[in-house]
């Protein structure tokens, strides 16, 4: 099994670096789709998670919804919206929109749950003393709860991002291209070089995101949350 050799030879061919089916274009496509999906998921999950964590209202509902979202197979999530989005736009509605919708469904649960859990796990004494100092609820959330919960929130963002990068390959079944395109074409054409080049690129991108966000998370769990905790403790 000379898969590495086949993939290396595939990468060496300049033809594979040009045009809409080339590595740079599809890599950019993959990153773009992932970023858009994550941005939409953040816009939904962050406010809801902050609200639930701060007020402790609707916890059970949020958790159960997150578990339902977690259980939905991504390929099924793509397939189930295809007929509907296709009515709106026969081109992008066949692959781009369904993939993004499925990626949002995939990314919301980890971000939502980590945001909620991170905020809810902040020491109640700190929150009470912040209130005692005359902070408004908004200030409590912004200057006490969020800074302390930030590493946990970023942890949710991290697992969501890695999952989205890996799973966005499924869009290629519907002709989306991106990095999954190499895998689907490699399978269809029995071209091992192309197939494993695709696998390698997806895995590398996922690991890069994982490493990068892990680094951010570690930075945040150091000084920022410690300082916030110390400030709040001092205030009390």
């Amino acid at each position: 099994m000379d898969l590495i050799g086949a993939a290396a030879a595939w990468f060496m061919d300049p033809a594979h670096w040009n045009g809409a089916n080339g590595v740079p274009y599809r890599l950019a496509q993959h990153v773009g789709i992932s970023l858009v999906s994550i941005a939409i998921a953040l816009a939904i999950a962050l406010p809801v998670g902050l609200y639930i964590g701060h007020t402790r209202r609707g916890q059970a509902l949020a958790i159960n919804l997150a578990n339902v979202g977690r259980a939905i197979p991504s390929l099924a999530a793509i397939a189930i919206v295809v007929p509907f989005t296709q009515m709106i736009d026969p081109g992008k509605g066949f692959n781009l929109y369904p993939t993004i919708i499925a990626m949002v469904v995939l990314a919301v649960p980890p971000i939502l749950v980590n945001t909620y859990a991170g905020i809810a796990e902040v020491d109640r004494d700190l929150v009470e003393s912040a209130r005692g100092m005359g902070m408004t609820e908004r200030q409590v959330l912004r200057s006490v709860e969020v800074p302390i919960a930030l590493p946990v929130i970023v942890g949710g963002l991290r697992s969501a991002t890695v999952q989205v990068i890996a799973t966005a390959t499924l869009g290629a079944i519907y002709g989306l291209g991106a990095l999954g395109g190499f895998i689907v074409e490699g399978v269809a054409q029995r071209d091992d070089g192309r197939l494993f080049a695709g696998v390698f690129l997806v895995a590398a991108l996922a690991l890069l995101a994982e490493g990068g966000l892990a680094l951010v998370q570690r930075r945040l769990s150091g000084p920022v949350s410690a300082a916030a905790a110390a400030a709040a403790a001092q205030a009390s």
Binding site: V113, A166, L170, V202
Partner: peptide, 22 residues
């Protein structure tokens, strides 16, 4: 009760499960 659900939601598809959905 709720803790189990929360743990599920948190760990369900976390890092380890990252790519299995593909």
């Amino acid at each position: 009760r709720l803790n189990v659900e929360l743990e599920m939601a948190k760990t369900g598809r976390s890092a380890a499960q990252a790519t299995a959905a593909v």
